[in-house]
Design a protein around this nucleic acid. Sequence first.
DNA 1: ATTAAAGTATGACAAATATCATATTTTAAT
DNA 2: ATTAAAATATGATATTTGTCATACTTTAAT
Lengths: 226, 226
Amino acid sequence: MSKCEQCIVREFSSLKALNKEELLKMANCKTSYTIKKGESIFEEGESVNGIYCIKDGVCKLSKLSANGKDQIVKLVKPGELLGQRSMISDEPTNLSAVALEDMEVCFIPKSEVLGFFNNNNQFSMNVMKTICGDLKESDDHMVSMAQKTVKERLAETLLYLEDTFGKNEDGSLHIQLSREELAGMIGTATESCIRLLSEFNKNGLIDINGKRISIIEKNKLKRMAE
Amino acid sequence: MSKCEQCIVREFSSLKALNKEELLKMANCKTSYTIKKGESIFEEGESVNGIYCIKDGVCKLSKLSANGKDQIVKLVKPGELLGQRSMISDEPTNLSAVALEDMEVCFIPKSEVLGFFNNNNQFSMNVMKTICGDLKESDDHMVSMAQKTVKERLAETLLYLEDTFGKNEDGSLHIQLSREELAGMIGTATESCIRLLSEFNKNGLIDINGKRISIIEKNKLKRMAE
DNA sequence: ATTAAAGTATGACAAATATCATATTTTAAT
DNA sequence: ATTAAAATATGATATTTGTCATACTTTAAT
């Protein structure tokens, strides 16, 4: 069992407020998992009895809509925590978490987290701030969905992907989504997404090389996204 | 200055975790406001240095989108708290709060609330749970915006308004929104909203009498909203 | 009471987007 | 290496939704 004390990603999450003693306690009760690309960490409707700390890999949080399409609500990356909302509300999750890459995650049981809440105010405040940040993001995202065109949302999403997950040596987006997943992020039909990508490509805004997408005209995309 | 101890709405919010002593302290530092219909409590971009407890009246939380339309993110009713997100994140609000009816609200300064956070764990947990509930609502709302048609969203919204704010003796929705505001809730153009209301009316799903809207075929609307 | 302004309503049309069909390319399995 | 399945691409078309114009109605101010 690896020590949480030495885990770097901890520094990027609410867990950075924990002291040595708490970290030791946590290391003793955590469970580590390896999750292969495409596998799920939890599914919509399941109860999550703790939180997952993401050590490596990116996953998508999505919700199946009535028309059978999977809407991606958020991407979660190393250092972030997963399942806080559901654990705190004491409700089944409203979202599924599926790995977009091979992942390493640690599960920390609810009882442990609640103990930290009670004894470590800074930790509580950190979690609260994170959730408040998620709420702001979600509200803003909602307004985008309601008010922006698909083209604007695609531009916005491509920029977000580059800013958040970086790019490879060849300049292409590091995170690779299928067209269907990209469509699921911007909330449109897969065909519409593909069509607009082709258009962006034709207009020299991006370069497409199979699954590899590179942003060429960042400023034009920014203007387009408003 | 009225006593918080005797304020009924407190029972419906996170504030119910406060003890007598805390309530007395709060009563001493709170400020009461009367806000007329149409006036704002705070505007997008302002810093909110505390939370507002709504004693009476309903307000809308909205965000101005790039195309100049006001997207309504949430309606807030008596008993609920306002401004928590912004206060906790220590960021300017991303939303404006405007009264839909004459309102009575109390402002509780940040220093006071932070004190409660430090000394009253149940209060912290209550606030956390509320924000988690808001987050779930917002995510679900986002998926609706992305995946449902305007017609489905209108049906959904009408049902929500009846369920949440009730109806008058004549059966019409108690909360009265302008067509523009209703359009702002469902994320569509005012004309589209009016057109669909007319259609619903023609098909006997609802009854329109000027500003008064009554739901006639609740089940059909439910099926339509999916 | 009269008038102006705001809100509501509807038609005509344009633009955005979804759907269906089908072709091509890539990926994975045998 | 061959084949089947999945993913990507694109055209044709239908549907949804937005925009602009205009008329009507209600509300509020003088």
